[in-house]
């Protein structure tokens, strides 16, 4: 009997660790949503495509073209960042007299196009990517931890530190916050608001690429994974509070953990349903999210 209890506890630990890892990926997607939302009030539904592209471009550069990871990684981030900037230039900026809704619809259209191009290039099969430090699991209190988990969580930490410094310490970061706060006043002090929007797309795409590169060794990647990742990331955003960065991280980690426990304890077939249930639950019970304030949700027009 005591043996069995420990095993069950071990299993719970396993679910927790897996959940936090997957949750870190969701958190990255959620952060990407918030960066664009904060500057433009647009929910960029092509956010998941950045993740998909991150994984597949990395597979191409590292596996197919044989570039070493240290080269393929930054190159992938740059390529996906350029895609993000193109998204702004080709889909968002040309729209005349934009309303937030038309812009969101434009991001849906863009995501369908990106997905189509990815299918054309890579086909429909999932691709694997070698784990960064091999696949010899570490055993910890009976749970099995893939070394790649540390990379994913580590990159989330790096992104958080980078963004905190960027938004707190640099004038460009402050200018982006200023655009989010009051775009009219921002242009009156000389900030080029359109360029800040471009930058927000670039940053989000870069973070999406990192999410995709780091998760692919664990869960493979194929052309049509973007939409589900976007839904999960959006669930994390809503759970944490639209626009809140701490909320995005908390929301992502909670969502990943719920999903992992749900899959383990209830049924793995319903894995994706849990995210939707959490999303709907959050919208009904606390639309402002865990860390979002009612004041902010009123302040934002959307």
């Amino acid at each position: 009997m005591p043996m069995e209890k420990i095993t069950f506890a071990n299993q719970l630990l396993q679910y927790l660790i897996t959940g936090l890892t997957v949750g870190s990926t969701y958190a990255m997607v959620a952060i990407g949503f918030n960066i664009i939302y904060n500057v433009t009030e647009i929910i960029n539904l092509a956010q998941g495509e950045f993740v998909m592209l991150g994984g597949l471009v990395m597979v191409f550069l590292h596996v197919a073209a044989g570039l070493p990871i240290v080269l393929a990684f930054p190159l992938t981030v740059i390529i996906v960042t350029l895609v993000g900037m193109l998204l702004d230039r080709l889909a968002i900026r040309p729209i005349r007299q934009p309303s937030v809704l038309t812009l969101i619809i434009a991001t849906i259209a863009a995501s369908i196009i990106i997905k189509g191009i990815a299918m054309f290039i890579w086909g429909k099969d999932p691709f694997d990517l070698p784990a960064f430090s091999g696949r010899h699991p570490i055993h910890f209190l009976g749970a099995v931890i893939q070394p790649q988990y540390f990379w994913i969580i580590g990159f989330l930490i790096v992104i958080v530190i980078f963004l905190t410094l960027f938004f707190e310490k640099t004038i460009i970061g402050k200018a982006m916050s200023a655009c989010a706060d009051n775009p009219g006043a921002a242009s009156l002090v000389g900030i080029n608001v359109k360029r800040m929007i471009l930058l927000s797309f670039a940053l989000s795409a870069a973070i999406g690429a990192v999410a995709g590169i780091t998760i692919t060794p664990i869960s493979l990647m194929e052309y049509d994974r973007g939409a589900m990742l976007a839904i999960k990331g959006f669930g994390a955003v809503v759970l944490g509070g639209l626009g809140s960065f701490p909320g995005a991280i908390l929301g992502g980690l909670i969502l990943g953990t719920i999903e992992s426990f749900g899959a383990g304890l209830i049924h793995s077939g319903y894995k994706d349903a849990f995210a939707l249930i959490v999303l709907l639950g959050a919208l009904f019970l606390r639309p402002s999210g865990l860390l979002g304030s009612i004041e902010v949700s009123k302040f934002k027009r959307f």
């Binding site: 402050k174 916050s177 200023a178 009051n182 006043a185 921002a186």
Partner: peptide, 13 residues
Amino acid sequence: LFSHLTVQDNINL
């Protein structure tokens, strides 16, 4: 003003 930022941030901007 940039009402969610500090006085110093507003001045810097």
